[in-house]
């Protein structure tokens, strides 16, 4: 039992390290180039709004029923 718990601890650390490495690679290989591309071409409002001065935005009129409430 003790060995299992110790192994679990080590496995968690290895998994954390692996996740760090994978995310690091995804970030520089995928995200950074995509970021450059998006900044040039983006029509996505939420994306563009990151660096534009925006003030009050009217909320979209949507019906808030059970179907809306099921959306995550």
């Amino acid at each position: 039992m003790k060995t299992y718990r110790q192994w679990k601890k080590i496995a968690k650390k290895i998994a954390g390290f692996q996740a760090d490495v994978i995310l690091f690679l995804i970030f520089f290989i995928v995200l950074c180039p995509l970021s450059l591309l998006f900044r040039k071409l983006s029509k996505n409002n939420s994306f563009k709004e990151q660096n534009v001065r925006i003030y009050w935005v009217k909320r979209k009129k949507t019906v808030h029923d059970i179907t809306w409430a099921r959306l995550q």
Binding site: L23, F27, F28, L31, L34, S35, F38, Q50, N51
Partner: peptide, 13 residues
């Protein structure tokens, strides 16, 4: 994260 890359590494990770 995408917009602020590469500054957003810590946020992303």
């Amino acid at each position: 994260s995408l917009y602020y890359a590469p500054k957003s590494l810590s946020l992303f990770r």
